[in-house]
Design a protein around this nucleic acid. Structure first.
Lengths: 225, 225
DNA sequence: GTCTGTTTGAAACATACGTTTGAAGCGCAT
DNA sequence: ATGCGCTTCAAACGTATGTTTCAAACAGAC
């Protein structure tokens, strides 16, 4: 082997185990034994467990954010001047995710699950790392969302973006389990691409919902306690 | 004190710490020192850490599921025969959550955050526990959703329910942080009730979206890899 | 007051963790 | 063949965890 694939073996094993079980629940000993490398290799090559977590994210997030920037560039070019629609923006995002070159067939779902965990399993160091490294494509996405929904108040848009993030992160973070359940209950196979294709219209519709906030259905009393 | 409030003090402390930091990241020593009780008290009163987690959930989930059953009863009675609408069903759920008697002002958001964690931080034992204990109100809610969206295929409905759960669990589980951000950025105060009031129309609109799955916007190519 | 069952207390237990150490192994230029 | 980085290895370190132990404290009944 050219020059020791230990680093990649560690990253592969860590990625999969993190996606399966979360960060705190995955020990370095699990990782190194799955990767068939010595326990000390992690600290030798990465420095610490947290640094390994960062490296796992960087390995797919860096190419992804480049892909995403390209997709946004093309989209804005195609729209010359006019702001892209909400659907176009969401599709640009999902296509970038889905079209990423995968290391293996599980690549995309591991990717999604890790992103979900990053949001959910709020490890302070990870949040900070991601914000520092990838703030640019993120705020560009936010700007596109804003231009695509000028009818929304800032507050409404803010909350609906959180709802979108939640639906996405949550679904993707448990997509394997959800796919299995669906397989057992209805005998239907599902790919991550199909999940994304179902998710986008849901998000777009929710994002553009008429605000019925102050008009709960007859018979129920709004609690203002 | 009538008869040792140790149990409640442990539950209070555990609830708050779990909501703040997750289950694995919260040690029994943190709990017992916050609760100002002896370390061994947890194992004495509950038997194990996992059993304590179950007890924390049971303490609010049992009254909640009773409240929810009542709300569904009243709703179905009011609709005599006809299936309740999607909006009515969602409102019944949110109102039951919001109207629950709270131990303190943080009650509802802790409640929500714990529910989010239960789904997200997939501890096998917790999943099993919740499914065994609270399957009945859950499947009743599912039945109502099904009757309220007869136009959806089973598969579509399944995924959209997951999207709803995700948006809800995720938003509520980080509602404190999100409220703070909004407060700092736009100077707007928000209550959990208001978040719920914004969430319901978003969910209802997403749930009833026209299925544009196979019609991505012009210019983008659907990946069927 | 004394006994009895329940609850608390301080200490220890066994285990698992992330990290560090120092020697051994390796490829490669000299 | 020798020496020099870089990498691997087995072993240990210190710390933190969940759990157990057993004596002390307590409450209520007699």
């Amino acid at each position: 082997m050219a020059q020791s694939d230990t680093v990649d073996r560690i990253l592969d094993a860590a990625e999969e185990l993190f996606a399966d079980r979360g960060f705190s629940e995955t020990s370095l000993r699990m990782i190194t034994s799955k990767a068939k490398v010595n326990l000390a290799a992690v600290n030798y090559h990465f420095g610490s467990k947290n640094a390994l977590i960062h490296a796992v994210f960087a390995r797919f997030l860096t190419p992804f954010s480049a892909t995403l920037e390209n997709a946004f560039d093309q989209l804005e070019e195609r729209c010359d001047g006019k702001p892209p629609t909400l659907n176009q923006t969401l599709w640009a995002l999902t296509e970038s995710a889905v079209r990423m070159p995968q290391r293996n067939e599980k690549g995309i779902s591991i990717f999604m699950r890790l992103l979900g965990l990053a949001y959910t399993q709020s490890q302070g160091h990870l949040r900070k790392f991601l914000e520092q490294e990838y703030s640019e494509p993120f705020s560009r996405f936010m700007r596109l969302l804003k231009e695509a929904t000028p009818q929304l108040s800032s507050v409404d848009r803010y909350w609906r973006i959180q709802f979108m993030l939640g639906a996405t992160a949550f679904t993707m973070s448990s997509s394997d389990a959800l796919r299995d359940i669906l397989q057992n209950k209805l005998g239907v196979e599902t790919t991550v691409q199909e999940i994304a294709a179902r998710l986008v219209p849901f998000l777009a519709a929710g994002m553009q919902a008429e605000d019925a906030m102050l008009i709960p259905p007859a018979g129920s009393k709004v609690s203002v306690a």
